[in-house]
Nucleic acid binder design. Structure first.
Lengths: 235, 235
DNA sequence: AGCAAGAATGCTGTATGCAGAATACGGTTG
DNA sequence: CAACCGTATTCTGCATACAGCATTCTTGCT
């Protein structure tokens, strides 16, 4: 499957691509690059919610003409990150508290399904990989290194979904996750319940190792509820 | 929420828009119209899976220049209905049997969630509306009028999701449903288990009326399994 | 005859130009 | 002083133009 061939947006710190990107010479087209770039600008807050996007301005800023930029905006509009009003241009989507709550509910359901499937389909090496990612995440937590922690956190969720082997699930999960990335990014700014989130992640690894499908599904769904509790006061 | 503001694609018989389009003067932009039009062309098979889309040709055929057409293609690529290879243009996405299976699994999960939420949030009038749609659908079934039956069938599913009140759910459901529309359209061509599908829909109304959340969730999830059984030999 | 290299053609990717709508501003009037 | 209307400017929407790459056909060589 894979409707979205571009990488999932990065955290906005480094370049868009993973370092081990090799593959059969994928010529990144300009509008694809712009999609990633603008997505990052939205996630890191440079383009704040509700901001109107002036095509000429942003285009000049990115060193790109209006054409590929407009194409990128259409793509992002389909993802739901921006809204287009005919004749009035593009606006960075505003997510209400209810939008976020709704998204987390759906995400919980999707990851729950992913967890059940992953427990069935995961190879031992895949489980080990997730465990390794988790270990690195814990290290970042102990070093209080927020950005890498945040990235690894997201990657673990994505990995579990990928292990499910269901491409449609990967796709829609990616869409919702992209919409929430900005919010979760903010949610991890505060110090409060950071430890709790790490503990919950700890369980994922344990349950995946035990291939406890229902347990993992419950844990992932619960994680979304807990995430809501952590972020709901900030939106 | 609502990332996708355009209408869900039509059945491919008539023009994309309803004739009574009035509303608060929404100036339909050209690329939006093209999105709907091309989506319909894919669903009704005019643009078969694997077909390469020549921008100039299709543009001339639709009476549109390449610019809005290309913008529409980017949008549809994000939806996952077509694939873009840099330098090589757009191709109508081919869905493998596994893709369809995966999509139905996700759709079952999403509609299951929608059913649970709908049983809680539905107003009596909304339930009556679904029941009325179902009655019309049964009438079309008895008249063996396939196209309206097919449309109403889809609308009922969409209605239940909408009643859930979860906009994120509406969005992702819409994406998966759009991808499957072509397949389901084919699935209802054969006469075999048409009656069975109608019976399953009958249950939806009964369970929704009874506000049996878990029952409706199970019925909707099961409906997707059954749908797979009905279509799996045709893909 | 088969293969390879080069040329030619067609298509995509991007930039620019132009027309029409939306917004902002200033002047006028109640 | 406020509200409204007309004008000017800016921005979007679409079309067209141009450059570069991909593909195919042709031609020369083995």
């Amino acid at each position: 499957m894979s409707g979205r061939t571009d990488e999932q947006a990065t955290d906005g710190t480094g370049p868009a691509r993973a370092p081990d990107e090799r593959g059969p010479i994928v010529r990144q087209t300009l509008h694809d690059a712009v999609v990633s770039r603008v997505r990052d600008l939205i996630v890191d807050g440079t383009l704040a919610s509700g901001t109107r996007i002036h095509e000429s301005n942003l285009g000049r800023e990115l060193g790109v003409s209006r054409t590929p930029l407009r194409e990128a905006l259409k793509y992002l509009a389909s993802e739901g990150l921006i809204e287009l009003s005919p004749g009035r241009g593009a606006v960075v989507r505003q997510f209400s508290a209810k939008d976020i709550r709704d998204s987390l509910i759906v995400l919980g359901e999707l990851e729950g399904l992913a967890g059940r499937l992953a427990c069935v389909h995961a190879s031992e090496s895949q489980i080990a990989e997730v465990a390794a990612m988790h270990a690195r995440m814990v290290a970042m937590y102990e070093a209080r290194d927020r950005l890498p922690y945040f990235k690894l956190n997201q990657e673990i969720h994505t990995a579990i979904v990928r292990i499910s082997g269901n491409e449609a699930l990967v796709d829609v999960h990616g869409i919702i996750q992209a919409r929430l990335r900005r919010i979760r990014y903010l949610g991890h700014q505060g110090p409060e319940n950071w430890a709790q989130a790490v503990t919950e992640h700890e369980q994922f690894v344990t349950l995946l190792r035990a291939r406890d499908a229902d347990g993992l599904a419950r844990a992932l769904a619960h994680h979304m509820d807990a995430t809501w509790e952590r972020v709901k006061n900030e939106v």
